[in-house]
C-alpha cells in the first residue's frame, strides 16, 4: 500500500509578493495548547507527563492531536496522518498555540499538501526546532505569520533559562529585549563554544530568519527556499561533521543566500566537531570553527557563533520575522529582539 505523499496543493502566494507580517495572539492562562507530531514520533507517554505538569503550572490546558501516538517507520504516522493533525490544530478554534512533540524527520514531506490558506486564516503560535524548521520557514514565508524557533514539547522545561525564554516569547506582548547568556555554575569547566564568539564584528538590524541548517539545505531548490535578504540569519545543527556543515554553507553561498544578509548568528551546534557524528568521517584535523571562519568571516556583516539556541539544553526562543539588532565588537556582543512577537 502506498503510504507516502499527500495530495499537492497550489501555493497561495506568488514567490514575488512578500506577505505582510502577521503576529499571533499572545498566549494567556486558561488557553489551550495543541500538541501534534509533524515529524518523528513522540516521546514515551510517561515522559509527556513532565511537560503536561509544566503546562498546568502555567495555567494552560492541552489537547493532543488524533494521530500523535502513531508511527510509520521513524515518522509519527503517514504523511497524510501527520498533515491532518497539523491542519486540525490550526482549524480548531479552541487551540491557541501549537507545540510540536518533537523534531526528527518528516516535515518537508508535508509541504506539498500543506494548506497555507487555512493557516493564513487561523494565525496562531507554532513552536518547535530542528526538523520543525521545515514548517517554521515555509509557513512564515508563505503566510507572513511569526513562527517560533524554540523548544519542542519535551524541552521547554529542561531548565529555567529555556523556560523563561519560552514563557516570555509566547506569554508576553512586551518585546523579548536584550538576550543574555545562561548563568555559569562557577568559573570551572566553561562550555565550548563560548556563547558569543565574534567571527566578524559589526552592527546589524533586521527581521530574524533561520533554523536548523540541515533543514535550510533541504528546502533549497524548492518553492520554500529560505530568503535571508535584508534579514539576520540564525543557524544551528547537531551531529553534522564540519565537512557536512561546509557543504551546506557552500550550497547557501552558491545560491546567493548570504548576498544581502544583514548578520549571521550561529548556535551551539552540538556534536558538530570532527568525529562526533560517528558517520561519514573525513580527516579529523579541521574543526567547525575553521569552517565557520573560512565560509563566513569574509561577509561584510557581523557574524557571531555560540548563542544558546538549537539542540543544547539552554534555548532562546527566536521568533521568525521579528526585528532584532546585533552589535558585535571584539569585546562584547549585544543581541536584542526589539519588536514584540505576539499581539
Amino acid at each position: 500500500m502506498v503510504q507516502t505523499g499527500v495530495a499537492k496543493r497550489d501555493l497561495v502566494k506568488s514567490q514575488l509578493i512578500k506577505p505582510e507580517l502577521v503576529k499571533p495572539r499572545v498566549l494567556k492562562r486558561g488557553d489551550t495548547i495543541g500538541i501534534c507530531a509533524p515529524a518523528s514520533f513522540s516521546l514515551e507517554p510517561g515522559y509527556m507527563e513532565y511537560g503536561l505538569r509544566f503546562l498546568k503550572k502555567l495555567g494552560l490546558k492541552y489537547k493532543l492531536s488524533k494521530n500523535i501516538s502513531r508511527a510509520w517507520g521513524s515518522y509519527a504516522g503517514t504523511d497524510q496522518e501527520r498533515l491532518d493533525d497539523l491542519h486540525s490544530m490550526f482549524a480548531d478554534p479552541e487551540v491557541s498555540a501549537i507545540m510540536c512533540a518533537r523534531g526528527g524527520n518528516g516535515t518537508v514531506r508535508l509541504l506539498p499538501g500543506l494548506d497555507f490558506d487555512l493557516i493564513g486564516k487561523n494565525p496562531k503560535i507554532l513552536i518547535g526546532f530542528s526538523d520543525i524548521t521545515g514548517l517554521l520557514i515555509p509557513i512564515h514565508q508563505q503566510t507572513g505569520l511569526v513562527t517560533f524557533h524554540g523548544p519542542t514539547f519535551g524541552w521547554f522545561f529542561k531548565n529555567k533559562y529555556s523556560y523563561d525564554h519560552f514563557v516570555h516569547a509566547l506569554m508576553q506582548t512586551k518585546p523579548i529585549g536584550l538576550v543574555e547568556d545562561p548563568k555559569a555554575k562557577d568559573e570551572w569547566d566553561p562550555p565550548y563554544p563560548p556563547p558569543r564568539m565574534v567571527l566578524n564584528p559589526g552592527s546589524a538590524r533586521g527581521p530574524l530568519i533561520g533554523g536548523c541548517l540541515t533543514l535550510i539545505s533541504q528546502l533549497m531548490g524548492t518553492p520554500y527556499q529560505i530568503d535571508a535578504a535584508g534579514k539576520i540569519l540564525f543557524i544551528e545543527d547537531i551531529k553534522e561533521e564540519p565537512h557536512a556543515i561546509d557543504r551546506m554553507l557552500t550550497q547557501l553561498q552558491l545560491a546567493g543566500t548570504f548576498n544581502k544578509v544583514r548578520g549571521v548568528i550561529i548556535g551551539e551546534c552540538l556534536d558538530c566537531n570532527p568525529g562526533a557524528s560517528k558517520r561519514n568521517q573525513l580527516t579529523l584535523n579541521y574543526g567547525l570553527e575553521h569552517v565557520l571562519r573560512e565560509k563566513l568571516s569574509f561577509l561584510k556583516v557581523p557574524v557571531v557563533y555560540g548563542l544558546r539556541f538549537g539542540h543544547g539544553d539552554h534555548k532562546i526562543t527566536l521568533p521568525l520575522g521579528v526585528t532584532a539588532t546585533l552589535d558585535a565588537t571584539q569585546d562584547d556582543v549585544l543581541f536584542r529582539i526589539e519588536e514584540s512577537a505576539t499581539i
Binding site: N105, V108, L111, P112, T214, L219, M220, G221, P223, R279
Partner: peptide, 20 residues
Amino acid sequence: KNESISTLDRWLTTLYVSGQ
C-alpha cells in the same frame, strides 16, 4: 555511502518537493 536512511530520504524529498 555512509549516510543514514533518514538523511537520504531528506534529499530525495528535496528533489520531490522542488517539483523536478
